[in-house]
């Protein structure tokens, strides 16, 4: 059957197929506190092939990473209450004995370098060093600095018990699409 593209500029069918059967949930759009709560409260329900520990981890990882999209995406959307919030995507997939949780958003190239450095540093540390790093950063954050999301990324790595799998894809001269993926084991022992 010939594909009709006269109604839309893209095929939702193709998009649906791209999000193949391993994808449990996908969302693209603005993220604010209300959307976070609705997705956060329900995202764990799709992870029904696992235990409470993995579900708690999915929720905690979601809360930190989705908040980063909301606060740090350079692609923003003005809501009806006048607030400007970040736009981005999130996906949760199921692959064998683990879930993959991914968030992505457009970032200014000038702003992303320290975040990538932070992720690479987090990935280079073992669990004990990562805990020590979180303690240090929490101390620094208390001295009146605004929350920069620094502890959030450390928390994600500790909760997921997996490295932060980051990817940067240029979209134009000034901006790139930045994504962070983490794996969460279905058989995790730490909650």
């Amino acid at each position: 059957m010939e594909k009709k593209n006269n109604k839309y500029d893209f095929s939702l069918f193709d998009s649906h197929n791209l999000l193949n059967q391993n994808i449990l949930v996908s969302y693209k759009g603005p993220i604010d506190e209300r959307i976070m709560t609705v997705i956060g409260d329900n995202i764990v329900l799709v992870a029904n092939d696992t235990n409470d520990k993995a579900r708690t981890k999915i929720f905690k990882v979601f809360m930190e990473l989705a908040q980063n999209v909301w606060l740090y995406s350079s692609e923003t959307c003005k809501l009806e209450n006048g607030k400007s919030v970040g736009m981005g995507s999130l996906v949760i997939g199921e692959f064998g004995n683990y879930y993959t949780f991914v968030t992505g958003n457009v970032v200014k190239n000038a702003d992303i370098v320290p975040v990538i450095d932070k992720c690479e540093m987090i990935n280079s540390l073992d669990r004990e060093s990562l805990r020590e790093y979180r303690r240090e950063q929490r101390r620094l954050a208390q001295s009146g600095k605004p929350n920069s999301g620094n502890i959030g990324l450390i928390q994600v790595a500790l909760t997921a018990e997996s490295p932060l799998d980051i990817e940067l894809t240029p979209v134009n001269d000034d901006e790139s699409f930045f994504s962070i993926a983490v794996k969460i084991s279905k058989n995790c022992t730490k909650k």
Binding site: R138, R139, K190
Partner: peptide
């Protein structure tokens, strides 16, 4: 705490901090 090793780790970290 509710059967959570990660939470226990964080409480230990609170003590260290």
């Amino acid at each position: 705490y509710d059967d959570s090793d990660e939470e226990l780790e964080e409480v230990e970290d609170f003590t260290l901090e």
